[in-house]
Design a binder for these strands. Structure first.
Lengths: 349, 349
DNA sequence: CTGAAAGCGCTTACAG
DNA sequence: CTGAAAGCGCTTACAG
């Protein structure tokens, strides 16, 4: 049905070998034959069969991307960036969603492994031992998770967390809550540690709530726990939880940014949509996606240390973005008078 | 390096043919050899090479999915559903994002075509003629776009639009605005028509604004246009625009749901996060993703009409979800007293 | 029920 | 510079 290399060869009166060279390695062929082959191939509407090519080359020109939940707004920017970068490099992306089931990560990776040249695992949930098994399947880069002896792109830089706590203490907050994420989450452990440490350093009390699932509904529940606790500033594991807190506060008539200050993490596009707008720690998701593809390509080229005790790790920066949901602690407001309202335009989504 | 069929055959003392059958067509093989082969294959950690399998079968076990923008919250639920359904059917999904460039749709489809058994095009932006070319590349199903002589899953049912307008007129609104989406958008044209028609039918004035890009920022701009226009009820092309309107209204101290009622379209998870929560037309994105995979599979099986004048088209239902951003038109409120506040829990995201 | 052989559509050392 | 041949790892008629 569809035209293949042999058809083109016949139409040219040449061997398949020559046609193949003319098309994929043009320098190895006489200039005039090259032109003729290319013209005839075009006329016949020939497109090489990628599958056959993959089989003989041993490379598929495809990479696998596995994420826990496409519908969680944290992931689409990463997926998009990976996909864009791959398109630019003429690589295809096969996508896997584990629906937050840690056990599926290895299964999906295994299913993909024979079909891709390398794998990008974003925020995997399963234990390090499972990640080591995944790494054995083929070249693998982790995003947002440090795995021993494996290359990774990390966006869990402590700077942003530190800035968040210092922002609150500078505003006079003395009792600071942390709405914890899932207990097994690597990010959660890192965030908790840094926040607790900076609280201590700044002489603020650190109070942990949770764990909470990274969902708006969990934030609604968290807001109710906060009420009457004496906590005046709170940092949520992620924006979804923070947005749930804001929604519940609005519903109950508490003023975010004055009665309680709320900080999210991710700086997702949602941050500008909430009311008030959400102060949040910016996490460079798109950059992480791009960096992950580049790192994986380096691993495939062998230009980078992909294993052993000192694998390549790319560390990206995080920082605090201040919006409307944080303000002086109650009783501290006077120090800030006269208050000039700051209007921050909603970001485009 | 990696273990292949021949290795398993050798370990079993059998031919590759038998091993192949034992693994992929177990009935054709003696029960005891079958068990033995399967056990040994497992012990050796054998996984079939999908690429080789594809080449000999002429099927890749992969489908292509092309969307305009992964980061637009409309698409992730569709992507997720497609991916989940495919995983259940042991199909891989290769994902393409055209970044809203209509011209890339054909290019990307062409690049994928040799690598997939079929294609799902979600909300494509390019003209029908381009879609016809894409259809010629191989089995193709369209989602959220009707293309002549091509199978499709449509979620542009007029019911939801009608309910939205009737909701507003029932609340006493007499001047109804429509914040139009991109001019070329197929959905936009359909929505505009239905809304205008129902306004006329109900004796309300129809006023169009825009076009607006489907982004929060565009809604901010739209809100300012609305002010002082006498429009009391407004339907936005999508939730992002509607959320921008709400954000701007909150910022300027206008009360959504009393001074102006706002309705979005998509019923995205964001609807429950905004303040007030957003009344929106539910569009069954996840169902559409699942239906698209099933339809594509039917096309591949040949059990469904995929071309000609009467191709298979699946039409899904839309309906209005009422939340906090709509209420009686100003001056009509008296008719509703005493007002009992309705509290609607935020949905999980 | 099992095996030897051909074939899927490419690429690429190896000769000439 | 060009061609014949082998090979990538499977599947599947065709024999036995």
């Amino acid at each position: 049905m569809t035209v293949n290399l042999a058809d083109v060869a016949e139409a040219c009166g040449l061997s398949a070998s020559t046609v193949s060279r003319a098309l994929s390695d043009p320098d190895k062929v006489n200039a005039s034959t090259r032109e003729r082959v290319q013209r005839i191939a075009r006329e016949l509407g020939y497109t090489p069969n990628r599958v056959a090519r993959s089989l003989s080359l041993g490379r598929t020109g495809t990479i696998g991307l596995i994420v826990p939940d496409i519908a969680n707004p944290f992931f689409p920017p990463i997926i998009k960036a990976v996909q864009q970068r791959c398109a630019a490099k003429d690589l295809a992306v096969v996508l896997g969603d584990t629906d937050e089931h840690a056990a599926d990560e290895l299964t999906r990776a295994r299913a993909m492994s024979k079909q891709v040249d390398g794998l990008i695992m974003v925020s995997p949930r399963a234990a390090d031992a499972k990640m080591a098994e995944i790494s054995k399947l083929g070249p693998t880069v982790f995003v947002n998770r440090q795995v021993p002896r494996a290359p990774a792109v990390l966006i869990e830089n402590p700077d942003g967390m530190r800035q968040a706590v210092e922002h609150l203490t500078a505003l006079g907050h003395r009792r600071i809550g942390y709405l914890a994420g899932p207990r097994r989450s690597w990010s959660n452990q890192r965030r908790r540690e840094v926040i607790a440490a900076v609280c201590e350093e700044r002489g603020a009390e650190f109070i942990e709530y949770g764990p909470f699932e990274p969902q708006v509904q969990a934030g609604v529940r968290a807001a109710d726990l906060l009420h009457g606790s004496g906590v005046t500033g709170v940092i949520a594991y992620d924006d979804l939880i923070a947005l749930g807190v804001l929604a519940r506060m609005a519903e109950r008539g508490w003023r975010a940014g004055s009665e309680i200050s709320v900080i999210g993490i991710d700086d997702s596009p949602l941050s500008g949509v909430a009311y008030p707008t959400l102060t949040s720690v910016h996490v460079p998701c798109a950059e992480a996606g791009t960096a992950a593809v580049d790192l994986l390509l380096d691993v495939l080229d062998g230009t980078v240390e992909a294993t052993g005790d000192d694998p390549a790790v790319v560390q990206l920066e995080t920082y605090l973005v201040i919006r409307g949901s944080t303000g002086p602690a109650p009783g501290e407001a006077a120090a800030f008078l006269p208050q000039t309202p700051v209007s921050i335009p909603a970001p485009s989504v």
